[in-house]
Amino acid sequence: MSVRQPQRILEVESLRVEYRLRRSIVPAVDGVDLSVGGGERVGVVGESGSGKSTLAFSIMRLVRPPGVIAGGSIRLHGADLTTLSENEMIGVRGSEMAMIYQDPLTYLNPVLRVGDQIAESLISHRRLERREARNEAIRLLERLHLPSPRSIAEAFPHQLSGGQRQRIIIGIAIACRPKLLIADEPTTALDVTVQAEILKLIDELVVELGMSLLLISHDLAIVAALCERVYVMYAGRFVETGPIESVYRAPKHPYTEALLGASVTLLEPRSRFRTIPGAPPDLAHLRSGCRFADRCPLRMDICAQYPPAFPVGSNWTASCWVHADARTDESPRVSRPR
């Protein structure tokens, strides 16, 4: 990887995204701060309903009503995306940042040949001639390790396998060499061997094109495979963020601890799985205070107030009152709940 540029590509501050339903307002993302540096790979992990996909779509300004960006800022290279018009956003999407989606079939046009779909983004963003764009698309298909790129370019999406379609989506995303790549569960629908190939491809491309990566996933291992820093999301907020190594080895937030405890890995089978009692809160009827408190083995009285992000190490914070008094380097690891 090239030398890390000091400046931040993406800075999200106090972002709030609401789904305004008839009877209630659901704050799916509720006061989230996130930054991605140049060339940095950052992951967001959370379970379903935690708001991680809403976050990704908001950054692309692709949340649709009843979803609304209700507050905060999203700065890309310093420019606040929340203030741009839809036309201006079209110029940003694809050329400065691009997204890979969970379900490639939904995001490919079923009646257009995939070569044309890649060419389209080259024509609109890089103003290439159609012929040039098509050739460039074929070069790109080759780069994506697709066998016989010329015939693939002529294919329609339904003629391709799941892994091939995801490669096409990746091709469309990187066609205009964006600085930031957002990947929302890019391998969820794929078989493990295909997943491994796609992750490897993303890894290569990020290095080769010097992109920054924001990877959204429910799978802790996938985030660890590609990223260097992680945000752990729970009920619309980040509860812990830090370098992957640190967070996974010695999680400081009880939720992170519980999530790691509940997941299984191949090399460490378990005869008994640790579970998290209860269920995440209903976002439409939130009480104040820590959102994990009802399920937390370490709950204290003070948890009735929402904890700020306490520093627990270098570049490492946890939003848990357990760390209120602890000094940075030696704050305790949260004890294993029984």
Partner: peptide, 16 residues
């Protein structure tokens, strides 16, 4: 092909 939580090398996926 299975990614593990923490591994020495970041990506060592195998291409079939």
């Amino acid at each position: 092909s299975i990614p593990e939580h923490l591994k020495e090398r970041r990506v060592d996926f195998v291409a079939g």
